[in-house]
């Protein structure tokens, strides 16, 4: 399966770190977005994207709102979504799970954790 990732984060630094990590894991195909709204626009225009990695706290549209929008769109609802965020308290994690996120990484992450979570998302997809 050819994977094409959408990396969503308002931080240029984090987008680059995640993209570099993907390259390091052997995934070369990815696009980036600076907020949830931009991500949705990309997702609706590029059907080849089959994996979303998103931050939570972003301007315009948060990662949580993005997940809810993805899950409520018939064409996108099955997309694996991995959240990478600084929010690590129980209530936040439960809120993300309730929004039907596939997996959850608390920043700062290690490359090993990113690899594991991508594999888990793909295995359960």
């Amino acid at each position: 399966m050819d994977l094409k990732f959408l990396v969503v984060d308002d931080s240029v630094t984090m987008r680059r770190i995640v993209s570099n990590s993907l390259k390091n894991l052997g995934f070369e195909n990815f696009v980036e977005a600076g907020d949830g709204k931009e991500a949705l626009t990309i997702l609706t225009s590029d059907s080849s994207i089959n994996f979303v990695i998103t931050d939570w706290n972003m301007p315009v549209m948060t990662g949580l709102e993005l997940i809810k929008a993805i899950r409520s769109d018939a064409a996108l609802s099955k997309l694996p979504v991995l959240m990478v965020t600084t929010r690590g308290v129980k209530d936040d994690i439960i809120e993300a799970l309730n929004a039907k996120v596939n997996n959850y990484i608390v920043k700062p992450f290690t490359p090993q954790v990113l690899k594991e979570k991508i594999e888990q998302c793909l295995a359960s997809a």
Binding site: D9, S11, T13, M14, R16, I17, N20, S21, N24, T86, K107, P108, F109, T110, P111
Partner: peptide, 14 residues
């Protein structure tokens, strides 16, 4: 590569 990973600190301090 680990230097890059450690730079997550920038996003967190921001």
């Amino acid at each position: 590569y680990n230097i890059t990973i450690a730079l997550q600190v920038q996003d967190i301090t921001t």
